[in-house]
Nucleic acid binder design. Structure first.
Lengths: 188, 188
DNA sequence: CGCCGAGTTGAACTGAATCAAGAAACGTGG
DNA sequence: CCACGTTTCTTGATTCAGTTCAACTCGGCG
């Protein structure tokens, strides 16, 4: 659980007391490669910190499943839309590898927000950064061709290209697996 | 300024004292149609509430200006990326109509966050909702064709279609003005 | 060994871009 | 209030990025 503390310390100082209060609400969970962490239609119960593993975010659909995000080691992961609104999720989270995560449930997090100043600050900071990341992605989708988006992934997040099956990457950058296969051929 | 209070009251209750503290930091500003509110390269000083008027968000470029957002009456408006990070803005805000806005500057907002519980809550709430809106837009860009995105605008935000020049709408849904003109012809 | 899913490749097709030109609407000054 | 220039919108012809459908290769695994 030290990884969570290290993560928080990058953002703001926190007293021992605050850390004990916050950390007491996290519990450990384990998932196998391929398992679904959060199902479409369920209400997201947990905000989770990834100790190890990779998560894929996708909208399931018999014909045309849509992958739109990945999370890695030492990041928080969550079906935020559902978690924030406490409505059923429109998408799913799947473990792409075996995983270990640390979870805090919705009500405990509300307690942290209500009872610690630092919790509230961290919550706002997290939401702001999620917003900034999505803004960047919006511009990427509007501004660049699929080929350019793929090349940008190399620079910004090579981990995605190294560790994730092509078909999911294709969906993530908004094209078909065949389309991405052709783009790759052009590049080499 | 009553509109701001009404807006806040939709989100959470607030004491008279808190309201007086918060509202004392807002100042009134006026812009003429076509004026630039926040310039690219400048650091965003203000978070602003729109009393009346329409704002366009865009990345200026001699060749290919990119419009990616609009704000209307009784919404907050801001170059958030710049405001949150206090780095120079990569985009601009322009008044599409004559406007009246109420502004709070960065340092005063930090005071509000530091000194009122309700301010912090409102800040987190705002960031979370900005995130949710961008998430929705991400999916719209990945999932639908330009034609479908245009039709969705009718349902979700007809104000945009009624009040905003076609060339900006085209950019917003990710196509050229010529492209949108053709799509329109198909629909009628 | 044979099966299955992931990735590649080819051919025909499509949505949207680009280039170019004309029509309509808009704003400003006389 | 009209006339003129500018901007916005439309339309046509051509090009291009990426899709779709289909067939094939490759590697992992029971």
């Amino acid at each position: 659980m030290g990884h969570i503390r290290a993560y928080y310390e990058q953002i703001t100082r926190m007293s021992e007391e605050e850390w004990l209060f916050i950390s007491s609400h996290f519990t450990r969970r384990v998932f196998k490669k391929g398992e679904v962490i959060t199902k479409k239609g369920d209400i997201e119960k947990y905000l989770s910190f990834i100790e190890s593993g990779i998560v894929r975010y996708y909208i399931p659909d018999v014909e045309n499943e849509l992958t739109f995000h990945f999370c890695f080691d030492r990041e928080f992961t969550c079906a935020y839309d559902s978690f924030l609104s406490q409505n059923p999720s429109e998408y799913e989270l799947q473990a792409l590898t075996n995983m270990v995560i640390w979870c805090i449930n919705y009500h405990d997090l509300q307690k942290v927000y209500a009872q610690t100043k630092v919790g509230n600050y961290l919550g706002r900071f997290a939401a702001e950064n999620l917003y900034l990341a999505k803004s960047k992605r919006e511009l990427s989708l509007l501004k660049y061709t699929a080929k350019q988006r793929y090349l940008n992934l190399f620079d910004e997040n090579p981990e995605i290209i190294e560790k994730i099956p092509l078909k999911y990457i294709a969906s993530y950058i908004g094209i078909t697996p065949q389309g991405l296969s052709r783009i790759r051929k052009q590049i080499i």
